[in-house]
């Protein structure tokens, strides 16, 4: 256990070091979130949506974290493959899924920074008021949300390790999740047939809960119910990703797809 924690920690640190040196990464945690926040702020401004700052900051923030986690984590596996290090980290005595977990954790930390940047930008640039009704609940839900994001990202990273079409996958997973989980607009405006997909995406519930803790919780029972769903889905994701990593270990060696593209 102690060993695993250490591995998670060092691969998290390494990940942050590697990422930070990539100019593209600075784009995706600073420039992109700010411009994105600018666009949504301009769109929400002068509209009838109440407490729209919550939508803008939360929505763009959650989208940025999601993009950062899924895009970077997916991209990192891809980069390891291109750099020839994927073979190395898969065949060390340390469990591959622990290494990946550390990497995703690193990206999550960076992603949270971009939420902070978004918040500061809106605050400073537009001097917009923002209040959180239930700060403590908000922080707790936020942490659970991150844990859930990590689980989703590790499933994604597993799929990318298995497949060489990683670029395709990572490029097309960002917007669908943002749209379906209703990060910037309620998913109720989507056609009804998309509902089931929205329901099995944990970000859907996370965003609902976060919005409630910003706006105030009227119905505690329904809040707890939604929280239970979030926790349940997250648990399922972890089980799934665990299974995936067991499959990976066999399958990549049988297929021989670890090496260069």
């Amino acid at each position: 256990m102690k060993n695993s924690l250490r591995t998670i920690w060092i691969s998290c640190i390494l990940q942050m070091k590697l990422s930070f040196m990539r100019p593209m990464f600075q784009y995706s945690i600073i420039i992109d979130p700010i411009v994105f926040a600018l666009i949504t702020y301009m769109m929400f401004k002068d509209t009838s949506v109440s407490n729209f700052i919550a939508y803008v900051v939360l929505g763009t923030g959650m989208s940025s974290i999601w993009n950062s986690i899924c895009f970077s984590s997916a991209g990192d596996i891809d980069r390891e493959r291109a750099g020839g290090t994927l073979e190395l980290i898969v065949s060390v005595p340390t469990n591959f899924k622990i290494i990946v977990f550390g990497k995703i954790l690193g990206n999550t930390i960076f992603g949270s920074i971009s939420l902070l940047i978004t918040f500061l930008f809106i605050k400073l640039a537009f001097n917009a008021p923002m209040s959180i009704a239930e700060p403590v609940v908000f922080v707790i839900i936020f942490i659970i949300t991150l844990i859930s994001y990590i689980a989703l990202a590790s499933i994604l990273a597993a799929l990318i390790t298995l497949s060489r079409n990683a670029v395709a996958l990572k490029n097309c997973i960002g917007y669908p999740v943002i749209i379906l989980s209703g990060m910037l607009f309620p998913m109720e405006i989507l056609p009804i047939w998309t509902r089931p997909v929205s329901f099995i995406l944990s970000p859907t519930w996370a965003v609902k809960l976060l919005r409630l803790s910003v706006n105030g919780i009227d119905d505690v029972n329904s809040f707890i119910f939604q929280l239970a769903i979030l926790v349940f889905l997250t648990g399922i994701y972890y089980l799934l990703s665990n299974t995936f990593y067991t499959i990976i270990d066999k399958s990549i060696r049988i297929k021989g797809s670890l090496g260069r593209m």
């Binding site: 949504t40 769109m43 917007y175 943002i178 749209i179 910037l184 607009f185 309620p186 405006i189 989507l190």
Partner: peptide, 10 residues
């Protein structure tokens, strides 16, 4: 699609 939906809602 994302921006169109956003506009539709906002």
């Amino acid at each position: 699609i994302f921006f169109c939906l956003l506009a539709k809602y906002v």
